[in-house]
Nucleic acid binder design. Structure first.
Lengths: 237, 237
DNA sequence: GGCAAGTCAAATGTCTGACAATTTACCAAA
DNA sequence: TTTGGTAAATTGTCAGACATTTGACTTGCC
């Protein structure tokens, strides 16, 4: 385990220091997924602090999804193998927080989103499968409903683009991009789409599905650029 | 504050429930950046739990950089305005964790990294300033040193690409991409570059700086593709 | 032998009350 | 005016207790 004596932890706050020690043990591979940590009592002894302090440290790690705890006889704290779902959720909330707390303007956010997404359309063209197309077409059908609220339209838009990213068949990519898109959603929700705007977006979506079906990455890139410009126009009007 | 009585929290674990309540207050805007939360004693009264439990809840929030605490007379817990630096650090460690714990293979990681980066080179070409070019050229000079360890070479590579991304002039983009690149670094560090590989990478870097200086985004995209292929060849050899 | 119920032990979750450490505000004296 | 010291508020830490959960073990019955 960690019998190191780092100097950083003299800056008070034992619970943070201990959390960091255990964290390093996990990051360094000394503890691997599903390993069980010593019990709270043992940890309090080995680290020379009270159980309350150990618990605060463990809560910090739990908040980062580094460990999970289970009660009972065979319980304890276990190194948590973070799923893509977990990571995605955490990143999305992280992104949301960052964007709302720092008052990022919608132009910057849009620019970032479309730039990232543009980067993966070639992979999507290469690896897309039929069910991705089906999903996207289903969302387009929803988007055509003139009764749809702006918010629901936006949600469908997110779903459409998530399917596009998933089509790239790369989980790391899906995870990063989905989080980015979702983080920007609060901003996008503030947009009001006129019917003309919606029609323009839907036309582009339809063209994108066609290009994806035909596996023409270059065309997808161009369409993404159009979509970005269209969205920015909507935002600034 | 939150005098709601959500049903979810009957699933035991009061500290998580209370953390979630406060978290919602922050996310919903009831508490804004730099607001001071009630003291631990007050919170324990209003939520009807002990101070220890409140503290565990606060540690969870602190671990997510949602709050920061200060001791002393005017101390307390304050809603933390997460800086881009904070978010970047958190995302990078998140990415590292996900990739190491889930044994993502280097092909997938590389593919994702270059796909994302490719998406922002056009913006970089548009907004780059001279100091970006300077930084990149400096890194190229470092990379030419044949004494450089593989790890140092890789670190310089990360710095080079970070400068490229920064050139896009979009903080959201910088933040997302820098985190992604850094998260993948542990995997890249496992690569061993032969001198021939390094020369190839350096040539591409030089060409990229030229293209960036001339603001030719399309050429940058092509070079990125070459670089991706080159890196994958190195990885698979 | 096999099954069911009860018991026990280990571990996390929570509470209580205390003390330590830190920081600011305030007040008094030089 | 400045300096120093004291008090108060607040987080950080500790020790010990009890509650709750859960799996393993034991016992007794069929």
């Amino acid at each position: 385990m960690s019998d190191n004596l780092p100097k950083l932890e003299k800056q008070t706050d034992l619970s943070a220091a201990i959390a960091e020690r255990i964290r390093q043990d996990i990051l360094s591979g000394a503890l691997v997924a599903d390993d069980r940590l010593p019990s709270e009592s043992e940890l309090s002894e080995t680290h020379g602090v009270s159980r309350a302090t150990v618990r605060e440290a463990l809560k910090r790690l739990a908040a980062q999804s580094l460990i999970r705890t289970k009660r009972g006889a065979t319980g304890g704290a276990f190194v948590h193998r973070q799923s893509f779902e977990d990571a995605y959720t955490q990143m999305a909330s992280n992104a949301t927080l960052l964007i709302t707390l720092n008052e990022v303007d919608i132009t910057t956010a849009c620019e970032a989103r479309f730039a990232l997404e543009r980067g993966c359309v070639r992979l999507a063209a290469k690896h897309r499968q039929d069910h991705h197309l089906d999903k996207m077409r289903a969302e387009i059908t929803r988007q055509k409903d003139p009764e749809l609220s702006d918010e629901a339209f936006c949600a469908s838009d997110v779903a459409f683009h998530r399917a596009l990213v998933d089509a790239a068949g790369n989980p790391v990519l899906s995870w990063q991009l989905a989080a980015a898109v979702e983080g920007i959603e609060p901003l996008m929700n503030m947009l009001t789409y006129r019917q003309r705007d919606r029609d323009a977006v839907i036309s582009l979506h339809e063209a994108m599905v066609e290009a994806l079906e035909a596996r023409v990455g270059a065309r997808l890139e161009i369409l993404m650029d159009y979509l970005r410009d269209q969205t920015l126009r909507t935002a600034l009007s």
